[in-house]
Design a binder for these strands. Sequence first.
DNA 1: ATTAAATTTTAGGCAAATCTAAAAAAATTA
DNA 2: TAATTTTTTTAGATTTGCCTAAAATTTAAT
Lengths: 217, 217
Amino acid sequence: MTFSEENYLKTIYHLTTISESGVSTNAIAEMMETKASSVTDMLKKLAEKDLVNYKKYQGVSLTEKGKLNAKMIVRKHRLWEVFLVDKLDFSWDEVHDIAEQLEHIKSEKLINKLDDFLGNPTEDPHGDPIPDANGQIINTEKHLLSELSENQNGICVGVKDTSPEFLKYLDKQEISLGSKIEIMGKESFDLSLKIKLNGRELTISNKIASNLFVKVV
Amino acid sequence: MTFSEENYLKTIYHLTTISESGVSTNAIAEMMETKASSVTDMLKKLAEKDLVNYKKYQGVSLTEKGKLNAKMIVRKHRLWEVFLVDKLDFSWDEVHDIAEQLEHIKSEKLINKLDDFLGNPTEDPHGDPIPDANGQIINTEKHLLSELSENQNGICVGVKDTSPEFLKYLDKQEISLGSKIEIMGKESFDLSLKIKLNGRELTISNKIASNLFVKVV
DNA sequence: ATTAAATTTTAGGCAAATCTAAAAAAATTA
DNA sequence: TAATTTTTTTAGATTTGCCTAAAATTTAAT
């Protein structure tokens, strides 16, 4: 499989997990910052290889084969991210672009040895699940912090927005995966939250709270 | 720089270190298992980018810029090999093909952090020197084991032939980097050597001895 | 010094992945 | 439902990297 084919597969996979239904040509084009006509070309090629179900004008979905391939790419991407953060001491806002390259390295043995070396992690530095060697994914129940009500407690398990800007903000506030968050109060006017984090009280906007995933405890 | 350009640069670099003089189109084609006409095409492109000095029918050499680029690719290749062997527990005959892919990952920060993580090694698992971040190479004086005479001692510092077959043979004989080798005797008929290795005596052919680099002690 | 052989380059083509512009189909709206 | 808008596909070019076959150049041999 070429890099380009892998990138299309990954994009279709991500779009499917967001909306479940068939994926449109335009949605793919937009996410990949390419033209719809280029997408059509590639979809034909992927259909030829039995990686997607494609019918003209009808949108596209992954076949089982395609889904497994996509999961393996996601697996590689997220394992490399763990490597970069845990072993090479990158911060979580820096790793995406490098992992984007590393995810295309072809060697099953490599990725499985890397998995062991990292201690078989189940989540990447952003809290997203890492598929195992068979494509199995363990999903921890997660909620947006903004959905919790007063006096509920959560542990930060992931982010919705993964942009460097947001991640840097979190670093500044010392919010990271595993942080324990208590909802002290919710301002009904703007939905901002007063929370207790690492023993310290602070206020965060609804925009922040709706991009933080927590596990309710 | 594309993968293909990087591969050409690396090939020219390796051919230059072997023979010093200008590199011929055919030599490149042979090493890369491609056609001479393809090489010509690429040489024009590299010359355009000021990475090689190229005159029709006159062979090619690297510019300073080209040489530095090539060294950085070699640096990446060899650091990744160290990672694979030291951290992921690959054996030295398995790492070449994977490193061949990893060497094209683009991120200076990544490679320098990897370098630190590995403890700034100066040699790869085959004993070949690793250029530093500035392209500087520390060359240890090395000789072929076959060039030593009776009663001289050496420490294995590298291999000339890096084929999996040869490397597996060495593993079987328990010869690795750092092994101390004493020349007990040399058979004038076939130039085979009787050596002492890790306290144990064994006989090796001239073919083996002329593919093992040692540091004389 | 010619001729023959080997090397290298040019010319023309092909496949992958992209693009623009135009045509076709589907969805939306009046 | 008919017209309009949006989405999607097709048609035709372009670029990169490769190929084959033929021409040009250099090297070697007689």
